[in-house]
Amino acid sequence: GLEHMADEEKLPPGWEKRMERSSGRVYYFNHITNASQWERPSG
Results as ranks from 00 to 15, higher is better:
35 A>N: 08
3 E>A: 11
40 R>L: 07
10 K>T: 11
28 Y>V: 00
16 E>M: 03
28 Y>R: 01
35 A>G: 06
34 N>A: 07
2 L>D: 13
34 N>I: 04
6 A>L: 13
18 R>V: 08
18 R>M: 09
30 N>D: 03
25 R>Q: 07
34 N>L: 13
24 G>P: 01
5 M>R: 06
17 K>W: 06
8 E>W: 05
13 P>Q: 08
9 E>I: 07
23 S>L: 04
25 R>I: 05
41 P>N: 01
21 R>E: 15
42 S>D: 11
12 P>M: 03
22 S>V: 15
17 K>T: 07
9 E>G: 09
5 M>E: 13
27 Y>H: 01
34 N>D: 05
40 R>N: 06
5 M>H: 12
1 G>S: 12
30 N>W: 01
13 P>V: 08
13 P>E: 09
4 H>D: 13
41 P>G: 00
11 L>F: 03
2 L>W: 15
17 K>H: 04
39 E>P: 06
14 G>L: 02
3 E>D: 10
12 P>T: 02
43 G>V: 13
12 P>E: 03
5 M>K: 09
27 Y>W: 05
42 S>G: 11
43 G>D: 11
5 M>Y: 11
22 S>A: 14
30 N>T: 01
32 I>V: 10
24 G>I: 01
7 D>N: 09
9 E>R: 06
31 H>A: 10
40 R>T: 06
35 A>Y: 10
33 T>A: 04
7 D>P: 11
15 W>H: 00
25 R>G: 02
36 S>A: 10
12 P>Q: 02
25 R>S: 04
42 S>Q: 13
10 K>C: 13
37 Q>Y: 03
6 A>W: 11
24 G>A: 04
36 S>N: 04
15 W>P: 01
32 I>A: 09
6 A>G: 11
5 M>S: 13
31 H>K: 13
29 F>W: 07
29 F>N: 01
21 R>V: 15
33 T>G: 02
17 K>I: 09
3 E>Y: 02
19 M>S: 10
34 N>E: 07
10 K>W: 14
28 Y>N: 00
18 R>A: 04
11 L>S: 01
5 M>W: 12
39 E>D: 10
41 P>Y: 02
27 Y>V: 02
31 H>W: 13
34 N>S: 10
21 R>K: 15
22 S>N: 15
14 G>S: 04
20 E>N: 06
43 G>E: 12
7 D>T: 10
26 V>L: 08
6 A>S: 12
6 A>M: 10
4 H>L: 12
8 E>N: 10
38 W>P: 05
34 N>G: 14
31 H>Y: 14
11 L>D: 07
34 N>H: 11
13 P>R: 08
8 E>R: 06
38 W>K: 04
29 F>T: 02
16 E>H: 05
9 E>L: 07
33 T>R: 04
9 E>N: 08
39 E>S: 07
32 I>E: 09
1 G>Q: 13
23 S>V: 03
11 L>A: 01
29 F>R: 03
12 P>G: 04
15 W>G: 00
41 P>H: 00
12 P>I: 02
18 R>G: 03
10 K>I: 11
13 P>T: 09
28 Y>L: 00
23 S>K: 03
21 R>H: 15
14 G>Q: 05
21 R>Q: 15
19 M>F: 15
36 S>I: 15
29 F>A: 02
5 M>Q: 11
1 G>Y: 10
26 V>F: 14
9 E>A: 10
12 P>V: 02
37 Q>L: 05
10 K>P: 14
39 E>L: 07
20 E>K: 04
20 E>F: 08
20 E>A: 06
26 V>E: 08
14 G>Y: 08
19 M>G: 03
16 E>K: 03
30 N>H: 04
18 R>L: 11
37 Q>V: 06
43 G>I: 13
20 E>W: 07
36 S>L: 11
40 R>E: 04
25 R>A: 05
29 F>P: 00
36 S>W: 14
19 M>D: 05
33 T>M: 05
19 M>W: 15
22 S>M: 06
27 Y>G: 01
29 F>H: 08
1 G>K: 11
7 D>Y: 10
20 E>M: 09
9 E>Q: 08
26 V>M: 09
15 W>Q: 00
43 G>P: 11
2 L>E: 12
34 N>F: 09
14 G>H: 09
29 F>Y: 14
26 V>S: 06
21 R>G: 15
11 L>T: 02
41 P>K: 00
12 P>K: 01
41 P>E: 00
21 R>M: 15
26 V>G: 03
30 N>S: 05
3 E>S: 11
26 V>T: 08
18 R>F: 07
24 G>W: 03
25 R>H: 05
19 M>R: 14
16 E>P: 00
12 P>L: 03
40 R>Q: 04
38 W>G: 03
7 D>A: 10
39 E>R: 07
7 D>I: 10
2 L>N: 12
1 G>P: 10
19 M>P: 03
8 E>V: 09
1 G>F: 11
4 H>W: 12
4 H>M: 12
5 M>L: 12
8 E>K: 09
8 E>C: 12
14 G>I: 02
14 G>T: 02
15 W>S: 00
28 Y>P: 00
41 P>C: 02
6 A>F: 12
24 G>F: 04
18 R>P: 00
28 Y>H: 01
1 G>W: 11
8 E>H: 09
37 Q>H: 03
23 S>E: 05
34 N>R: 10
30 N>R: 01
26 V>I: 13
5 M>F: 11
13 P>A: 09
38 W>E: 06
14 G>C: 07
25 R>D: 04
12 P>W: 02
15 W>Y: 01
27 Y>N: 00
4 H>E: 12
13 P>M: 08
14 G>K: 01
16 E>T: 04
2 L>P: 12
3 E>I: 12
1 G>H: 13
20 E>G: 04
27 Y>S: 01
19 M>A: 09
24 G>H: 06
17 K>S: 04
9 E>Y: 10
43 G>F: 14
29 F>V: 05
21 R>F: 15
4 H>K: 07
7 D>R: 04
